[in-house]
Structures are given as structure tokens and as C-alpha cells.
Design a protein around this nucleic acid. Structure first.
Length: 116
DNA sequence: CAGGTGACTCTAC
DNA sequence: GGTAGAGCCACCT
């Protein structure tokens, strides 16, 4: 793995996000080996058309969905997240209730520094 | 080459 | 908890 295209690394990092978990644009970019390219991640997701890509697991740094409430993409993202057991409240991912299912803490799984 | 834009992020108030 | 400003990178006009 020397250097595939930045896009491929980013897409790989997004696909690497476990089901029921979420990651921030900057976090994904960092994992992809592209620190500071959060905007590049956003642009890729906007251009991406792969239905198998868990793009809905990518949120902003504050846990907010990176789209206006009521927007088509917003509803799609929130719906998919809920389908995975992730609670979405007011356009924001609830990392406290876990949906009341006893799911692992999202913030402790992926929001902190990446595991070694 | 300069200026504007965006599914971003950080710091300061 | 919020808003405002600046920094950031890739792309378009």
C-alpha cells in the first residue's frame, strides 16, 4: 500500500467504519493518511454513487449531519443511521442513549484517537 | 493568476 | 449552549 489515489484511501476508510458506528470527516481523512483533507472527504461523498458505501456513517466534527435539516440527503442519512441502531436527534447523533439497546459508546469507539 | 465556493475544523467570545 | 472569524484544501470561473 504505497499510494493508491487519495480518493481510494478515503473510500476505504469510510468502508472501514463498523456498522452502528460513526466518524467525522477529519477523522476519516486522517485514517486515510490525508490529515487536513476533511473537505476532500466531503466532496468525494458528494460525488460518490456507490450504494454499498456507508457514507451515512460520516458526520461533522461535532457529531452533526453535514446537511441542512429536511434535505433529501439528510433524511437518507438519518434514516440509515437509525437502521443501524444509531439514534439521531435534531440532526445530531445521540452518543448517550445508544438507542437504549446498550450499544457500545460511539464516542469511545471512533471519536477519540484511532486504535493502534 | 486571482477570486469564489463548499456534505470541514478549530479557536475565541 | 450558541455565533463569528480565520484556516484549511481541492475545484471552478
Amino acid at each position: 500500500m504505497v499510494d493508491k489515489s487519495s480518493a481510494e484511501r478515503i473510500l476505504a476508510a469510510v468502508r472501514a467504519i463498523p456498522r452502528g458506528q460513526v466518524a467525522a470527516y477529519g477523522e476519516v481523512a486522517h485514517r486515510a493518511g490525508l490529515p487536513g483533507r476533511a473537505r476532500l472527504v466531503a466532496r468525494l461523498l458528494s460525488e460518490n454513487t456507490d450504494p454499498g458505501l456507508p457514507w451515512h456513517r460520516v458526520l461533522r466534527a461535532d457529531g452533526r449531519i453535514a446537511m441542512p435539516l429536511g434535505s433529501e440527503g439528510f433524511r437518507e442519512q438519518s434514516r440509515r443511521l437509525r437502521g443501524e441502531g444509531v439514534a439521531v436527534v435534531n440532526g445530531r447523533v445521540d452518543k448517550s442513549t445508544h438507542g437504549g439497546k446498550g450499544l457500545p459508546g460511539i464516542d469511545e469507539q471512533l471519536w477519540g484517537p484511532p486504535p493502534g
